[in-house]
């Protein structure tokens, strides 16, 4: 019996450890034969160690990746598994949409509460015949900076009569279509953008009500949406991350489940 050099034993032990990086079914099926082939190569005097070791290392890297990819391909080629994964992905997409839509709607609806109160109060005072300047005392709310709610009274032509707010020193007026709609329906709730732009624009959550009586006109109560939109963006990020996380769990779970339920082909 020939004695095995100690460095061969060390290399073989290292190779046996590296074989565990292959997918378990492949390792179980071919691990002993691969180890034997490596042992044979080590003992082959026609093959230099200098060329064998780089060849085996390259082979380990490429074939481990290849066998894992082949296992994933086999797993995801099973229609029942793919169907289950798609159903779960659909459910998780619905859950993620709900995680975004419900808080977003709660935030957006709650944003209008002070404006509804302010617009209702001012409309009632104006319909009682109180002068606009008296009913809506001038204020100094900067619509671009302040988060405070404000009210503006307009005449029947849409011209400002009294305002608690200003934008660049002026009282802005919403598009005439808004007044036309309110004239017919009595009230409108709109996201009004007196200054356009994503980063430097100004967006106002506005409630516009019709003023009837001896001096018809309109009342607009508004509030800068900046803070609520920032919260909506946070909710969107959280829902997005949750969705990606759930999809990741589904893909990993499907791969693991497929691996343990892989039908024997041999």
């Amino acid at each position: 019996m020939t004695r095995t050099p100690p460095q061969f034993d060390r290399l073989e032990r290292f190779y046996a450890l590296a074989l565990r990086l292959y997918p378990a079914p492949f390792h179980d099926e071919y691990g002993p034969s691969m180890r034997q082939a490596f042992r044979d190569a080590l003992r082959d005097r026609t093959l230099s160690r200098r060329s064998l070791i780089p060849l085996v290392l390259r082979d380990l890297v490429t074939s481990i990746a290849k066998e894992h990819l082949a296992m994933l391909r086999d797993t995801f080629a099973r229609p029942a598994l793919i169907f289950n994964a798609l159903v779960l992905a659909g459910i998780s997409t619905g859950v993620a949409l709900a995680l975004y839509a419900i808080p977003q709607q709660v935030l957006r609806q709650g944003l209008n509460d002070p404006q509804l109160q302010l617009a209702g109060d001012l409309t009632a005072r104006l319909e009682q015949g109180i002068a606009p300047a008296e009913a809506d005392p001038a204020g100094s709310v900067d619509m671009a900076r302040s988060l405070a709610p404000f009210v503006i009274a307009y005449d029947d032509e849409g011209r400002p009569l009294a305002s608690q707010a200003h934008l660049n020193g002026k009282t802005p007026t919403p598009p005439s279509g808004v007044f036309d709609y309110v004239r017919q329906h009595g009230e409108e709730r709109v996201s009004w953008q007196p200054i356009l732009g994503r980063d430097h624009g100004v967006r106002i959550a506005a409630v516009v009500q019709r003023v009837n009586g001896p001096h018809p006109g309109f009342v607009l109560a508004g509030r800068n949406m900046r803070e609520v939109e920032a919260r909506e963006e946070q909710v969107e990020h959280m829902a997005g991350l949750t969705w990606i996380g759930m999809l990741g769990v589904i893909v990993a779970g499907t791969a693991v489940f497929g691996r343990f339920t892989k039908p024997k082909t041999a």
Partner: peptide, 11 residues
């Protein structure tokens, strides 16, 4: 051929 490529191909 390394053992990994060989047995992967044989499989």
């Amino acid at each position: 051929l390394g053992p990994g490529t060989l047995y992967g191909s044989l499989d």
